[in-house]
Amino acid sequence: MIDFWIILTASLVATTTAILGCFLIMRKMAMIGDAISHAVLPGIVIAYYLTNSRASFPILLGAAASGMVVTYLIQFFNQRVKLQQDASIGISYTFLFAIGIILISLFSNDVDLDQDCVLYGEIAYVPLDTLTLGGFNVGPRQVWILGTTLLIIAGSVFIGYRKLVLTTFDPAFAAAMGVSVVLWQYYLMAGVSLATVVSFESVGAVLVIAFLSGPAATAFLLTKDFKKMIYLAIGFGISASIIGYYMADWLAGSIAGAIATIIGVQFALAFIYIQFLRKSRISETLENKVLT
């Protein structure tokens, strides 16, 4: 049963992030996702400290607040003082992440969070923290939270799908049609922040990037159809969760780390396959030309 809950948790995280990841990498915003996932830390820690609980709502508020701070900082460095984009992102998120780690050390007696857990989560403990509804054990709390998040994200992507796709692939045309590119960007960012925060406990700040960018990138290599890309990405995310879990079990290591490793392996295989395909295609056309 524990196996099932852990794999389910990982799959829920993988599905949510795979959907968002497809939009992120097409918009060249993968590193913004990286920045947000690191930068929400101080907000989360302060919310933990103030409310002294793992209740989700205050933590979401805290994370949203620090997510806004990092977006503002990046924009400040990039536009107000004209620092290049990559450096603006780098300065802003490392600063907030450093503050977060310092706060954890400062509150270490009062807050039930440790530094390592922040980086790669504690998915193995997910089944221990169960939710009881009307005196009836309905499964791990995290599964319910992640399930709800998945519904929210999938629902909002479904509702805004046409406009999200339009602003992703042709922002100039979208603007000409009167669709606000900035608004839909924030819509997406809000989704990324939400997904990052709820995935935080199970997979941590760094590995959520693997979930966001990996399956989407692998799917992108294999198809040109965006809808197909989303389904493929979800498939890769879930299969990586299952294989990763058993690999972690075998190596007695971190589950989230093992899943990230499998995500990397999937990408490597797809990449090699594409290279191979391209080469054989080139030699085929060459042969045809020689024959004619």
Binding site: D34, I209, A210, S213, G253, S254, G257, I259, T261, I263
Partner: peptide
Amino acid sequence: ALILSVFFGVGVLLL
């Protein structure tokens, strides 16, 4: 983003 997180993931697994 991909290389960074996957390498880190491998590192965490080994650690």
